[in-house]
Design a protein around this nucleic acid. Structure first.
Length: 862
RNA sequence: GCCCGGGUGGCGGAACGGCAGACGCAUCGGACUUAAAAUCCGAAGGUGGGUUACACCACCGUGAGGGUUCGAAUCCCUCCCCGGGCACCA
């Protein structure tokens, strides 16, 4: 904002109002009002379609709904929203019954923090923010069916979020456990992961002394669905990168679990390994510091050292442990285990490079074939034993292949004179190779060796084939106020008892003070009237659960509620769900690649198993819009001062210009920088389009003349290109083609209606306000929202003359204009007779002539 | 370290293995105007040659290097740089 620099000296010069190239400030509100009044974009319900269902196929197009922050809409939001809007408008014109809704993901930390600071109830903050977002989104003219708006903080909505939680609970997929959570001693409060800085301080007040302490938490058993979440990725049309991220997150690995007896005791330690073929190379074992058997295997003399090490490890956060990754630490327990394949006694160590959370929290260490074990063994002087040989490469490539001198290479023999392979000294060989020094599997390649040794273990009852996942169960509770209450009551006699469905929604209690309780108890614990209740089973005294759900909960199923948002007897009616699901196109930011999409898929599958939804996957096609950077190429942020506010853009250029520009910037899924000059270019284009139809006073220029052939051709090319590109979400090139059309027509005197009317329809999905206005000016009484999409005439696209390029050895030497239908033989004759080509052929012999009809002739000569 | 993206004029970006740079921005020139803005028309990858000036011609050119092909921005291999994700996962 401009302020006069010195009050009273110079009166502020009024900024000359930006001359409008067309009256968007009149047109845009007008049509937004029209659409709202006529409910133009209301999706038709399946029952109202009756017999015509097949003629009007359904299309469900979904945006990732926003978290309505206090900062208001960001230019990143309209990018994805415009893309889906264009697609929806286009498909409506092509005859689809389109469902395109919008809502608010409105629980979350900022409103709660604001409440703590100011005492304003989060519901009030949330309502204000939602109002702002709604206003901003509406001003962009998106074709949402606003009667389906949902808000995750609305009790009528979260009633069903709680209901779904109860279904999970009843299915045994929700359980309580003691889990370490971040605790800030300074705030006396539990912190979310994102509130903990990398250096271990608290992000809210900068307190040091943040550490993890175990607290009772609700956990959802997402791991029970790991395999299906992985496998069903094959059913959906998503970007490979997102699928890959999900696969990595789930992290399936096949291997074997193996039992190691503890020397001198009845205890066994179970380990998981993906390389059972290296069992003969196991020279020690490692237990995670938290492993329950550590105490039992530790010898008296080592107890002090082990305890000290465990205490130190407990103090370190996972973050620190990861950061200190380079330097391995650990202590010997004094205990030994027996390697089941050869009955050798191997030492048991404790080290924090083994995580309690993965596998069994214990490993067999094979330093010769695992880089981590190698580093550890090297540091502590532990034995290394080679049991897999790297296969011999072909003789001639041997020296070059590795870049090592022969001196660092050792040949490995398994009895015979010929080496089975080799190893490079000073590093672990982690690849596949040939087993040796391993009596049961000597000479076998890794894949077979794994199979054979696993079978052998299984037969002896020492182990078995196992699949492990990196995916962990989902920590579902938060020690927060502004979230869905978990509908569980704790009874002394009956433990965790679900609320009867008739008592849903369980609303949040009104509170004056939202700040953390100061103990590990969530803020809700302070609402004692609310907390103290009766057990639904026995009527005895009981306490309500005071944890709330995470923000993910509401967004896990919102796409289902849009289908039937007012239903108060079910979260969605079966027939409606059956008609609309699955979501055909889902567009949103890549930041939700893993968590939101995985959690949603998980809930959906549970609902599917319970017979509440009809499809195994919720989102058939997913597209991520790329981030829009600031004009300086940096991420938009207040601190850089490069944030573009959609309100300003709409005020100065109009919504159509903003929409169209964001689509013109580049491919939807790419990262691209904002350019105000680029925006102006698109704005100019809209002005040119407007002026094709009317003069400065708004008088219609369109006539009923017959369009020239050349223009008809451009029109049909444009119909084809815009249609195809819109269908494939290649919006940037569709806009280019419309620009070409407008440039062509601008150059002409005449303004034939036959030419311009179809163009208005092409423009409509992109610049809907402008298009509706022009449509009306052309004499139409009804909105063009359902006007049929223009068809192109293939015959008009055909060129009768084409330019063919003539090449010699791949270099262009001439071009000739020829009839499009010319035969390959004639074309070849023509090329060989060409004077310029002759110049390049003198003294050379023609080896080969390639003729691509209608395109080129290439003469290979030497 | 691993897994994904991406590197094309001054800039954003186009280009079924077949005329690289569509379209837009910025730039320059012209028309209109008293003037400017707006608008309209036109030029333009680089280097060198050529011409009074054009026209025109040659060579180079899609991160680097190799390969496949009559022909590569596009396919294959190796590498470099930028962005994102995961990260002691046994």
């Amino acid at each position: 904002m401009r302020h006069s620099c010195a009050a009273g000296i110079v009166p502020p010069i009024p900024m000359p109002e930006l001359r409008k190239k067309y009256p968007f400030d009149k047109i845009e509100p007008k049509w937004q009002r029209y659409w709202a009044e006529h409910k133009t974009f209301a999706a038709k319900e399946p029952e109202s379609l009756s017999h015509s269902v097949t003629q009007s196929p359904k299309l469900y197009v979904l945006d990732m709904f926003p978290y309505p922050s206090g900062a208001g809409l960001h230019v990143g939001h309209p990018e994805g929203y415009t893309a889906t809007d264009i697609y929806c408008r286009f498909q409506r014109m092509r005859g689809f019954n389109v469902l395109h809704p919008m809502g608010w993901d409105a629980f979350g930390l900022p409103a709660e923090q604001y409440a703590i600071d100011t005492g304003t109830h989060p519901a009030i903050t949330t309502k204000n923010n939602v109002d702002t977002f709604r206003r901003q989104i509406k001003m962009l003219g998106f074709s949402y069916d606003w009667d389906r708006e949902v808000d995750t903080t609305d009790p009528e909505y979260f009633k069903w979020t709680q209901w779904i939680f109860l279904q999970l609970f009843k299915k045994g997929l929700a359980y309580e456990a003691q889990v370490p959570v971040w605790w800030c001693e300074g705030c006396k409060a539990v912190l979310a992961n994102e509130e903990v800085n990398a250096d271990g301080t608290c992000d809210r007040k900068g307190h040091a002394g943040v550490y993890q302490r175990p607290l009772r938490q609700w956990i959802l058993k997402i791991t029970a669905y790991a395999e299906r979440l992985l496998k069903d990725l094959d059913l959906v049309n998503w970007p490979d990168s997102i699928k890959e991220q999900q696969r990595n997150w789930i992290g399936r690995s096949e291997g074997a679990s193996v039992q190691f007896k503890v020397h001198g005791s009845e205890l066994t330690i179970e380990i998981f390994t993906t390389r059972p073929d290296t069992l003969f190379g196991a020279t020690y074992m490692v237990l995670a510091p938290e492993h329950p058997l550590v105490e039992k295997v530790t010898a008296l003399a080592h107890q002090a050292a082990v305890n000290a090490y465990r205490a130190e490890a407990a103090r370190k956060s996972e973050l620190e442990r990861a950061a200190l990754e380079k330097d391995k630490t650990g202590v010997f327990t004094g205990g030994y285990a027996i390697n089941p394949v050869n009955n050798e006694k191997i030492p048991i160590w404790v080290a924090d490079y083994v995580m309690m959370g993965y596998g069994t929290g214990a490993i067999m260490a094979v330093p010769a074939h695992d880089t981590r074990d190698f580093e550890f063994a090297k540091k502590f002087g532990l034995e290394m034993r080679d049991v897999v040989a790297k296969p011999m490469p072909a003789k001639e490539v041997f020296d070059l292949s590795e870049g090592y001198t022969k001196k660092s290479i050792r040949y490995l023999y398994a009895g015979g004179d010929k080496p089975v392979g080799y190893k490079v000294e000073g590093q672990a060989f982690t690849g596949d190779g040939i087993a040796f020094n391993s009596p049961i599997i000597d000479g076998l390649r890794t894949a077979e060796a794994k199979k054979k040794i696993t079978a052998w273990l299984q037969e002896k009852g020492l182990g078995k084939a196992t699949v492990q996942y990196k995916l962990r169960d989902w920590l579902f509770s938060r020690q927060r106020y502004w979230g869905e209450p978990i509908p569980i009551v704790h009874c002394e006699k009956h433990g965790a008892v679900p609320l009867p469905e008739s008592e849903l929604p369980l609303k949040l209690p009104e509170m004056k003070d939202y700040s953390p309780s100061g103990s590990a108890e969530p803020p809700l614990a302070k609402a004692t009237d609310w907390v103290n209740t009766k057990c639904p089973q026995c009527g005895g005294p009981a306490k309500r659960e005071t944890n709330t759900m995470p923000q993910w909960a509401g967004s896990c199923w919102y796409y289902l509620r849009y289908i039937d948002p007012k239903n108060d007897t079910a979260f969605v009616a079966k027939d409606k769900e059956n008609y609309w699901m699955p979501v055909d196109l889902y567009i949103g930011g890549a930041e939700h690649a893993v968590l939101h999409l995985l959690y949603s898929r998980f809930w959906h599958k549970v609902l599917f198993d319970l017979g509440h939804v009809s499809t195994p996957e919720p989102f058939m096609r997913l597209v991520n819009q790329g981030m829009i950077l600031g004009e300086d190429g940096r991420k938009m942020s207040k601190s850089w001062g490069n944030v573009i506010n959609p309100d300003d853009v709409v005020r100065d250029y109009g919504a159509d210009a903003l929409r169209m520009y964001e689509m013109f910037m580049g491919p939807l899924d790419m990262v691209k920088p904002w350019s105000t000059q680029g925006l102006e270019g698109v704005y100019r284009f809209l002005g040119r389009a407007w002026r094709l139809f009317c003069d400065e006073d708004g008088k219609l220029l369109v006539d009923d003349s017959e369009p020239a052939g050349i223009l008809l051709k451009v029109l049909h090319q444009t119909i084809k290109k815009v249609g195809e590109d819109t269908d494939t979400l290649a919006f940037n090139t569709a806009v280019s083609q419309m620009m070409i059309f407008v440039n062509e027509v601008t150059a002409q005197e005449k303004r034939p209606q036959k030419l311009l009317e179809p163009f208005v329809l092409l423009l409509a999905p992109y610049a809907p306000h402008l298009a509706e206005e022009l449509w009306e000016k052309l004499g139409h009484k009804q909105s063009l929202a359902y006007a049929p999409w223009p068809k192109y005439d293939e015959a008009l696209l055909k060129e009768d003359k084409v330019t063919v390029i003539l090449q010699v050895n791949g270099k262009i030497r001439d071009r000739v204009e020829v009839p499009a239908q010319i035969s390959a033989a004639d074309l070849e004759k023509l090329a060989l007779a060409n004077e310029r080509i002759h110049q390049y052929l003198t003294g050379k012999q023609v080896k080969k002539v390639i003729v691509v009809p209608g395109r080129l002739v290439n003469i290979a000569a030497s």
